[in-house]
Amino acid sequence: MQSCDFLVVGAGIAGASAAYELAAGGSAIVLEREEAPGYHTTGRSAAQFLESYGNDVIRAITRASRAFYDAPPEGFAGHALLSPRPSVYLAREDQLDDLADFQKDAGADTAALTAAEVAELVPVVRPGYAAAGLIEESASDIDVHALHQGYLKGLRRRGGQVVTRAEVTAARRTGGLWQVETAQGTFAAPVLVNAAGAWADTLGRLAGAEPIGLQPKRRTAITFDGPEGSDCRAWPLVADIAESFYFKPESGRLLASPGDETPMEPCDVQPEELDIAVTVDRIERATTLKVRRIAHKWAGLRSFVADKSLVIGFDEAVEGLFWLAGQGGYGIQTAPAAARCAAALATGTDLPDDVAKLGLTAEAIAPARLRPRVLA
């Protein structure tokens, strides 16, 4: 039996980043069911850093992550984690109220665009489609692979380890310790961190906890060549204000998605042909782009709870079970601050000052908020 202070289940971005922070003050082991970390959602994400994205809780954790992205620890990555890429949001005439609401609630620096300014910034938008728009200049691409590998390498430098092919088959608490059985042996720790992504409720039930209502949802993406003779590498991300589609440059091509959120059971999700067809249709209706050949297609799971905020904190009914789940589509951009929050709460301390100053409370992210209250 291997023992540690913190046993983390899931080596995606949530588990890797939390284990890295926890290993600064204790021993940490990460259990990963797949052959390599990041096989599922993390490895399929082409993430943006968008301070306007999500609800108030998500935006606060995102803003608190900015300092890490701008200046990661020495040796964390060999190059910058962020690359500037402004985001342009489009609104048809019937979406102008939605555009105004978005700008009011964005919590980030955005500037209004006229239809003519949209056309100048994004010439491929079909004439007459956009009545107005917004631009978020501070948005950036995130190097997801470098971020994830930086956390895993940093964890190992701090004495932690990642054990792959270690799907959890049983978890029981005895004598103040969790004993977790896997194909790679039995592991023990006083704190079990549930960072199992789409499988977080499955692991929670195995540990004897009530579910938090996690719902995995499929998101589809394709890549295709840009217009012949054009260099699209410097284009902004372009999104419909209702997120019914978006596209952005990606590795010399264009990446596009219909913004789908189809409820699924946890699985190794694959793209559906209908969703791919919808993607192409929406892009070609809104722009003059032609998707003549799809270079690559894939899907990933984004797992949400009812209020679409993160779930970070100890289970109120199961001793030593710590939840780190519900990252939805925000897990990459929030990872640095979410990991620090997790490490603080898992070690019995308050949220980091910089996060608390942005209005975040432990109660707003605690699993207890999702459980029905029993009235006396």
Rank of each mutant, 00 (worst) to 15 (best):
Q2S: 14
S3D: 10
I13H: 09
I13E: 07
I13Y: 10
A14G: 14
A18Y: 08
L22N: 04
G25A: 12
A28L: 05
I29R: 07
V30E: 04
E35L: 06
A36I: 11
Y39C: 06
T42L: 13
R44A: 11
S45D: 08
A46F: 14
A46W: 13
A47V: 08
Q48A: 14
F49T: 11
N55V: 10
I61E: 02
I61A: 10
T62K: 00
A67Y: 03
F68E: 04
F76I: 13
F76R: 13
A77E: 12
L81P: 10
L81T: 11
S83M: 11
S83E: 15
A91S: 08
E93C: 11
D94T: 08
D101W: 11
F102P: 02
D105P: 00
G107N: 02
A108M: 02
E117Y: 04
E120D: 15
V124W: 12
V125M: 03
Y129L: 06
A130H: 09
A130T: 10
A132V: 04
I135Y: 08
S138I: 05
D141H: 11
L147C: 11
H148T: 12
G150Y: 13
G150L: 11
G150A: 12
G150P: 10
L152E: 14
K153G: 12
K153A: 15
R156Q: 12
G160M: 00
V163P: 01
T164Q: 06
A166Y: 07
T169C: 06
G175Y: 00
G176D: 01
T182Q: 02
G185Y: 02
V193H: 05
G197F: 10
A198K: 05
W199D: 07
W199M: 04
A200G: 14
D201R: 03
D201N: 05
A207C: 04
P211G: 09
G213N: 10
K217E: 15
K217N: 15
R218F: 00
R218V: 02
A221I: 12
F224S: 01
G226K: 04
E228Q: 08
S230Y: 05
P236F: 04
V238F: 09
A239G: 08
D240R: 04
A242C: 14
E243Y: 02
S244V: 03
Y246F: 15
F247H: 07
P249W: 06
S251C: 01
S257L: 01
P266S: 09
V269E: 11
Q270L: 13
E272M: 09
E273T: 13
L274V: 10
R282T: 02
I283L: 09
E284P: 05
T287R: 06
T287G: 06
T288W: 10
L289V: 05
K290E: 07
K290N: 01
R292D: 13
I294H: 06
R302H: 13
F304V: 15
F304L: 13
I312G: 08
D315A: 07
E319M: 01
W323N: 13
G329M: 09
Q333V: 11
T334F: 02
T334V: 14
C341K: 00
A342P: 12
G348S: 00
T349A: 08
D350C: 00
D353Q: 03
V355T: 03
V355C: 01
A356S: 10
K357T: 03
L358Q: 01
G359K: 01
T361I: 02
I365E: 05
P367G: 12
A368F: 00
L370G: 13
L375V: 14
A376T: 13
